[in-house]
């Protein structure tokens, strides 16, 4: 895992080259670039593999989490959802889990709590709502608002 890399403590980049007698660039010379691989092994046809079938490497940000950015979290109510996939297309953090045209839920490791999915949800009442980060799923579903009647203009 990425956390286990512990880069600051054991930073021995370039050590093996030094031992092999290679001339490394000084601080005022051109520094080497870095190559990070997204996957372990062969990545052919990765576009046709689902996230759970892929072999992500430790360098892929899929293995990291930004859950600590969140103050409120979106909660998903399966009973009201119509699978329109609006939330999927506009989620900026690839956090809406959709499989086989169905909305399954939210990836809380990558969600930053921006509330865009709640804004674009077209159902009445909304099938995604923001709750406090520590709120329980059953508690949140019990507190779901009733259907609103349309106001006549």
């Amino acid at each position: 895992m990425a956390q286990e890399l512990n880069l600051l403590a054991t930073d021995n980049r370039g050590q093996s080259q030094l031992e092999a007698g290679m001339n490394l660039a000084g601080w005022d010379e051109v520094t080497q670039g870095t190559v990070l691989t997204s996957f372990e092994g062969d990545a052919t046809g990765i576009a046709n593999k689902k996230a759970e079938e892929r072999t992500y490497s430790d360098f892929n940000s899929y293995t990291a989490s930004v859950a600590s950015w969140r103050v409120q979290k979106p909660v998903f109510n399966r009973d009201i959802c119509i699978d329109c996939q609006n939330c999927w297309v506009w989620c900026p953090d690839s956090s809406i889990l959709s499989r086989d045209k169905q909305m399954l839920g939210i990836d809380y490791d990558h969600c930053k709590g921006c509330e865009v999915c709640v804004e674009v949800c077209p159902t009445n009442p909304k099938s995604l709502l923001m709750f406090n980060e520590h709120a329980d799923l059953e508690e949140s579903l019990a507190a779901w608002p009733e259907k609103k009647k349309k106001e006549k203009k």
Binding site: I46, A47, N48, K49, K50, A51, N60, S61, Y62, A64, S65, V66, W69, D83, C84, Q85, N86, W88, V89, W90, C91, P92, D93, S94, S95, S98, D100, K101, D107, D109, H110, C111, K112, G113, C114, E115, V116
Partner: peptide, 25 residues
């Protein structure tokens, strides 16, 4: 949108763009 959503994401989450940024959309 339903058919579009069967595609598998090749841009992963946990990047550090601001919440609600349109770049990643």
């Amino acid at each position: 949108l339903k058919e579009f959503s069967t595609n598998n994401d090749r841009f992963e989450g946990a990047h550090t763009l601001c919440p609600g940024c349109a770049h990643s959309m």
